[in-house]
Write a protein that binds this DNA or RNA. Structure first.
Lengths: 204, 204
DNA sequence: GTGCACATACCGACTGGTCGGTCCGTTCGC
DNA sequence: GCGAACGGACCGACCAGTCGGTATGTGCAC
């Protein structure tokens, strides 16, 4: 990639061939699943040929792996930004959980692919992805544990369970959310954050 | 199937060929995914040949469809049993939600297959499965709406959202639960039920 | 009680088609 | 003129489903 194309790529995400490949692959994987999408379909949709694809990516697997990387980097970055602010814990958690819902819906295809096709990745790459995801969860869990120590949140439930409970809901958005629904992404995010915080209230 | 084998089949689930096929197929689909599992592998694991499989099932698709049917029938039946008892609403909901977690974990492979391979089904069969699942959710939602009308549960959140929130968590159990973990299925079920009920408490 | 008609329960070689990946060729910017 | 960025024909592997066959009952006529 030359300087010029690199600069252009930042402004227009689909301007370069590798980005366009990633973009159409995500759409196709989300719609038909990884195994049902042939490399031929991907390159045709991107307006190139196999030669181009295998020039930029090692394998079909590699394409999937890059999609995962993109999702994880974006979410981790976003969480980090919120977690370190000076806002009260409750507010930080509320913002973080609303945000993760909103960004999950904004990148619904990436997320569908993530949970539908994760197990098609090679063992090696799967391990890497899982490790990254775990790091993200641990960062999030830190917020909850902080509140449990301070007494703001109920401490009779392991933070792990809370995390799995909440992120289960978030990760399943892809299987039912439709843009045509009556609620906006932000509204759903706020509902979800409310439900999380309500379930964390100490028992009276 | 003769009388004798039919009787035996009730006691020993894997005694007949079709049941054994369903059983090994579930395991293989859960481990490797639908598309990555060849019919040849399935029949070899079941100790029969393709001829046998295509004698009992119309297609590979059909095998998957039967797995879904089994899961849905079991869960609907269980919910119905709890929903109609005379116990207080709060208890009925608690039991129903604990139960669904416990039975999801007890049949973890079925559930993994359900969410990983659902979209590999033919459009037609997918519609049928989704309709059945919707009916189940609606029955469950009925319980929540009942509590919202009576004032037992908070009414400022749509029951739909609560359902999607809770079942998202339940359906994602398959992606993280390991039998080797420190919590039993029942303990997790009780935690989940607690969290659901806590998030439903009216705001004080 | 024995032979016949028919059905159920399988077996396994084979086919038509698909797909990931390779490899050699070509174009073009610098 | 050289390397990066592609094009596209081709290969070997694999796979769902088919189909003609066999073997083991099961009911029934006589």
């Amino acid at each position: 990639m030359t300087r010029a194309t690199a600069r252009k790529a930042e402004a227009e995400p689909d301007a370069t061939v590798p980005r366009r490949l990633l973009s159409v692959a995500t759409k196709l994987f989300a719609k038909k699943g990884f195994d049902r999408t042939s490399v031929q379909e991907i390159v045709e949709a991107a307006g190139v040929t196999k030669g181009a694809m295998y020039h930029y990516f090692d394998s079909k697997d590699d394409l999937l792996y890059e999609i995962y990387g993109r999702v994880l980097r974006a979410q981790t970055e976003q969480l980090e930004k919120v977690a370190v602010t000076e806002a009260p814990l409750r507010e930080r958690l509320r913002t973080a959980s609303t945000d993760v819902v909103v960004s999950t819906i904004a990148n619904l295809d990436d997320n569908k692919v993530f949970w539908q096709s994760m197990h098609q990745l090679s063992q090696d790459k799967q391990r890497t992805v899982r490790a990254e995801r775990r790091k993200y969860h641990e960062r999030f869990r830190g917020l909850i544990e902080e509140g449990q120590r301070s007494g703001e949140f109920r401490a009779d439930k392991p933070a792990d369970i809370i995390i799995d409970f909440f992120f289960g809901s978030v990760h399943h958005l892809g299987s039912w959310y439709r843009r045509s629904g009556s609620l906006s992404a932000r509204e759903i995010g706020e509902h979800y954050a409310d439900l999380l915080l309500a379930s964390l209230r100490p028992e009276s």
